[in-house]
Amino acid sequence: MRLQETRRPARLILESGDVFTGVHFGAVGESMGEVVFNTGMTGYQEILTDPSYCGQIVTMTYPLIGNYGMNVDHVESRRPYVHGFVVREFSEVPSHYKSMESLEQYLARNGIIGIAGVDTRRLTKRIRSEGTLKGLLTTLDPSPEEIEAKLKAPLATDQIDRVTTPVVYRAPGEGRRVVAMDFGMKQGVVRSLLARRCDVIVVPARTTAKEILDWRPDGVMLSNGPGDPEDVPHAVETVRSLLGKVPMFGICLGHQLMALACGARTEKMRFGHRGANHPVKDLRTGRVAITSQNHGYVVSEASLRGTDLVLTHVNQNDGTVEGVVHARYPAFCVQYHPEARPGPDDSDGLFDAFIEMMDQVREGRWTPYAEAH
Rank of each mutant, 00 (worst) to 15 (best):
C252G: 03
P279D: 04
S303R: 02
L107F: 04
V167I: 14
Q56F: 10
S300P: 02
E148M: 10
H373K: 13
Q105P: 15
A156E: 14
V179Y: 02
T61M: 09
Y329M: 14
C252K: 01
V298R: 13
S143H: 06
I251P: 02
H295L: 00
V325W: 05
S16A: 07
F249P: 05
P142F: 08
G306F: 02
L257Q: 04
M32K: 09
V200I: 03
Q159Y: 10
L133Y: 03
A276C: 12
S16G: 08
Y297M: 09
R2Y: 04
V179C: 07
G131N: 12
A171F: 15
E130T: 11
L140I: 10
E104G: 09
V334S: 01
R362E: 14
L193W: 02
L140V: 11
R362L: 14
T367Q: 13
L103W: 07
I47S: 01
E15Y: 10
F351R: 00
E15H: 12
L193H: 01
C198V: 04
F332V: 02
L222N: 02
S347A: 15
S192K: 12
A195F: 03
I115Y: 04
L350D: 04
K210R: 10
T312F: 03
R176P: 07
Y68Q: 15
Y106P: 01
Q4L: 15
P344C: 12
Q256S: 03
S102V: 00
A156D: 14
L12Q: 02
V189M: 10
A261H: 05
E145I: 14
V203G: 05
V325G: 12
Q159D: 06
T6D: 15
K98T: 12
R7G: 13
V321R: 00
G227S: 04
M100C: 15
I160N: 04
N71P: 00
Q293S: 11
R8M: 08
R126E: 11
N67C: 13
N67W: 14
T21E: 14
A327K: 08
L14W: 13
P229T: 01
S52N: 03
T124I: 09
V288N: 11
G84Q: 05
P80C: 04
R328C: 09
I160P: 13
R122V: 12
G250Q: 01
R176T: 07
I112C: 13
L3E: 14
F90R: 09
T164M: 14
S241Y: 10
K281Q: 08
T59I: 02
T367E: 11
L242T: 00
K281A: 06
L103K: 10
F183H: 06
V200H: 05
D346A: 07
I290G: 05
A327P: 10
A171M: 08
L155T: 10
L243M: 09
P80Y: 03
S91F: 11
I127T: 06
I112D: 06
A276L: 12
D228I: 02
Y53H: 03
T238K: 00
V236P: 12
L103D: 07
R128C: 10
M357V: 05
P154R: 12
V220W: 02
G40R: 01
G131Q: 11
T291G: 02
L103I: 07
P344G: 13
V82D: 09
D348Q: 15
E92R: 15
